[in-house]
């Protein structure tokens, strides 16, 4: 029953808003809704991998912020390669978080907070603390493929779906994915089975950093620029999307597919708030409460001897 709860919530949400305004359920509107949350989805997928192994990543928003700045700066010199470079930078940031967590034994919420601080500094330094803008022609040449539509489906949405499929493939059809599940289900057992747990934990953090950077690239192309605060406000909905989707804080179950549903729930809730005239500040309070409820109802207490 619990497994089916997220998509039932999604359908109920859609119907609820659909009852007040049928136009909400039109394919064009739903497509727009999904496209809107494409960067959020990519970031949430990255965080999913880390929560899946029972850790947490609080650096995603800062990495995405840094990425919007670096992409905008690198665009004139490197063109489309700038995207590849910054995604590699995101991977590196994540790997550092992972190494600090596993080798230095620093709890992940602190290590990722610290790496987030470093990423924020890099973003502020590189941007000179101001908003930067992309040259329209250069943006079109390098990232024009992200902006158009094919058969009515925006390319941004397609890109997000491809990224989600890639993450889903990693999670369910590779050795690394199976080991992520093993770590999330029972880390001591994984260690006892002779798995290099540390290596795979670092990989999970690195992938999360990489996905956060991808989200940053997409966001900066969409807004045609970058600033060290551009992705502000992404962290809360991204974590909410993961937990509401059904990946518990203790890890091991759920995964990428759950997060896709979780992100759609976030999108529907956001849209419904506009329909019901609830101010944006109400959203933050609402999502905060939803987060607490989602954690409390999904967390696996048998894995926690004491709750600190």
């Amino acid at each position: 029953m619990r497994r089916h709860f997220p998509w039932i919530t999604l359908v109920c949400g859609l119907l609820l808003v659909g009852l007040t305004d049928v136009r909400f359920l039109s394919p064009a509107n739903l497509l727009g809704l999904a496209t809107d949350v494409a960067p959020l989805l990519i970031m949430a997928i990255g965080i999913t991998l880390v929560i899946y192994i029972g850790s947490i990543d609080l650096s995603s928003q800062s990495i995405a912020n840094m990425t919007t700045v670096l992409t905008t700066i690198a665009l004139p010199a490197f063109g489309v390669v700038s995207g590849v470079l910054v995604v590699a930078a995101g991977f590196l940031c994540g790997a550092i978080s992972g190494m600090v967590t596993t080798r230095f034994k620093v709890p992940s919420f602190i290590s990722t907070l610290a790496v987030g601080g470093i990423a924020l500094s890099i973003g502020q330094y590189a941007s000179g603390q101001q908003a930067l803008h992309m040259d329209t022609v250069q943006r079109q040449q390098a990232f024009g493929w992200l902006l158009g539509k094919t058969a009515g489906i925006p390319h941004e949405l397609m890109a997000a779906i491809i990224v989600a499929l890639l993450a889903w493939f990693i999670q369910s059809h590779t050795i690394a994915g199976r080991i992520f599940k093993a770590i999330g289900t029972g880390e001591p057992v994984a260690v006892a089975s002779g798995i290099h747990v540390e290596r795979y934990k670092i990989l999970a953090f690195a992938l999360s950093g990489m996905f956060a950077a991808m989200a940053g690239v997409m966001f900066s192309v969409r807004l045609s620029g970058g600033s060290p605060t551009l992705a502000e406000g992404f962290l809360l909905p991204a974590i909410v999307a993961v937990l509401v989707g059904g990946t518990p804080l203790t890890g091991g179950v759920g995964g990428v597919a759950s997060t896709v549903i979780g992100t759609m729930i976030v999108a529907v809730v956001r849209a419904s708030m506009i329909y019901f005239n609830i101010p944006a500040t109400g959203q933050q309070i609402f999502f905060g409460i939803v987060l607490i409820v989602a954690i409390a109802s999904t967390i696996d207490r048998s894995k926690m001897l004491t709750v600190k």
Partner: peptide
């Protein structure tokens, strides 16, 4: 603005 980065390294 280097402060956040320095503090990050410090806390680690």
């Amino acid at each position: 603005y280097f402060q956040d980065g320095v503090l990050g390294i410090l806390v680690i």
